[in-house]
Computed example of a mutant assay.
Amino acid sequence: MRIAFFAPHKPIDHPLPSGDLIIGKTLHNFLRSQGHELLIASRFRLRNISQKPLKWPALYLEFRKTLKRVEEFKPDLWLTYHSYYKSPDLLGPYISEKTGIPYAIYQGVFATKYRRNYKTWAGYMANKHALLYADHVFANKDIDFHNLSRIILPEKLSRTYPGIEPDKFNYCPQSAEEIRNKYKLNGKRIILSTAMLRDDVKAESIADLINAFAPVSREIPNAILLIAGDGEARPRLEKLAAQKTGNQVIFLGQVKRDKLYKYYSAADIFAYPGINEALGMVYLEAQCTGLPVVAYSTRGPQEAVVHGETGLLSPEKDIAAMSANITRLLIDDGLRGEMAKAAPEHVLRNFDLNRNLHEVEQSLITISHWRD
């Protein structure tokens, strides 16, 4: 197939890492690895475009350029990654119509609450138009599938599952030894967390984790919390950690994704509260490496973690419950061992990216012939 690929929220080669970026880039790269030709139709960012009228003339010019680009490429299909009210696809439906090619959306999102706010109404309507126009929509979260089923015909909607490449997150004893020696962690109980330290729910989650770790650090003096990630909130979080736990929290800075397996391998458990978190690739990566997970029982962690089998979840903002779960897993070697065995099996069974994307690929091949 020849595929025109577009990510309206953030181009897949954007330098700022995020879970959404990883999913989009992985989808793009997988399709290329299968021998399909892909054109990045546009790198124009549509984030909050409905609230930025000064960008509308530039959007019109980009539409003209993208149309010419696509006409020259002659694709069999237009594939948009992640359209929702903040970043609705304003290019794909119209260019697909003009060129007569099928149009699909991977990771479509729909929620009616945004039609009731004048600030989000335009983005909501634009996104709804794209979803309704699409020949097929793939939803990779339960709530998205449920919401989309209210407006999308069953034959045009698929429940898909994201995932990771398990071979890239195998436990590595040599790496575990390397990291423990590097940070002088031998004899320590290690909790690992990783997040972008932005001044939003990411920083709020890490602040909750530090507060939950504080009583653990007093009860288990050899416990260490490692935090991988960087951002504008880091100085504030470092100050909070020093106040609450002394020197028992180590900020690692940004760690490249292809090196994260080393840190997962060195840890005993993984903890990240996950406020407003989507599925969360880090939960899958950690479990694949054999780490039990501690998180809030919010939507994202619930989809990735089996409570009581591969991790322990607690109500959002219940700091004491999260603290108790961390303590329990650090102290109970038997429980931790059982979960360490179950976690990789859970990921392989449900979140093997190659298997899941092969199913998406077959659907796209079928869709590409719908308008022949």
Rank of each mutant, 00 (worst) to 15 (best):
A7C: 06
P11H: 05
I12H: 05
D20T: 10
L21I: 15
I23E: 12
T26L: 06
H28R: 15
F30W: 06
S33N: 11
G35H: 02
G35V: 04
H36D: 07
L39Y: 02
I40N: 15
I40S: 15
A41R: 07
F44Y: 13
L46W: 04
L54V: 12
L61M: 02
L61D: 05
L61E: 01
E62R: 01
F63T: 03
R64Y: 02
E71V: 01
K74R: 12
T80K: 13
Y84G: 09
K86F: 01
D89K: 06
L91C: 07
Y94H: 11
T99R: 13
G100C: 08
I101W: 00
A104M: 06
G108E: 03
F110V: 01
A111T: 08
Y114F: 11
R115M: 13
R116C: 12
R116T: 15
N117V: 07
Y118T: 10
Y118V: 15
T120I: 09
W121T: 13
G123M: 07
G123C: 04
Y124W: 08
A126I: 15
K128L: 11
H129M: 10
A130T: 07
A130M: 08
V137A: 13
I143W: 07
F145L: 12
L148V: 03
R150Y: 07
R150A: 14
E155T: 02
K156T: 01
S158R: 12
P166T: 06
F169M: 03
C172W: 13
S175V: 03
E177M: 03
E178T: 00
K182Y: 02
L185I: 01
G187E: 09
I191A: 07
L192T: 01
D200E: 08
I206L: 11
A207V: 06
L209K: 06
V216T: 11
E219D: 11
E219N: 14
N222R: 12
I224K: 07
L225F: 10
L225Y: 04
L226D: 06
I227S: 09
G229I: 00
E232V: 05
R234A: 02
P235E: 02
R236W: 01
K239W: 03
L240N: 00
Q243K: 07
K244C: 02
K244I: 05
T245C: 10
Q248G: 04
I250G: 07
G253M: 06
G253A: 10
Q254Y: 05
Q254S: 13
V255G: 09
V255S: 05
K259P: 02
L260T: 01
L260I: 11
L260H: 00
L260Y: 04
Y264C: 09
I269T: 13
V282I: 12
A286R: 03
A286D: 04
L291I: 01
V293A: 14
V293Y: 14
V294E: 11
V294C: 14
R299I: 11
G300M: 12
P301D: 03
H307Y: 12
E309V: 00
T310N: 14
T310L: 11
E316R: 10
A320S: 15
A324W: 08
A324S: 13
I326K: 05
T327V: 12
L330P: 02
I331P: 02
N350L: 14
N354D: 14
R355G: 04
N356M: 10
N356C: 02
Q362D: 09
T366H: 15
W370A: 07
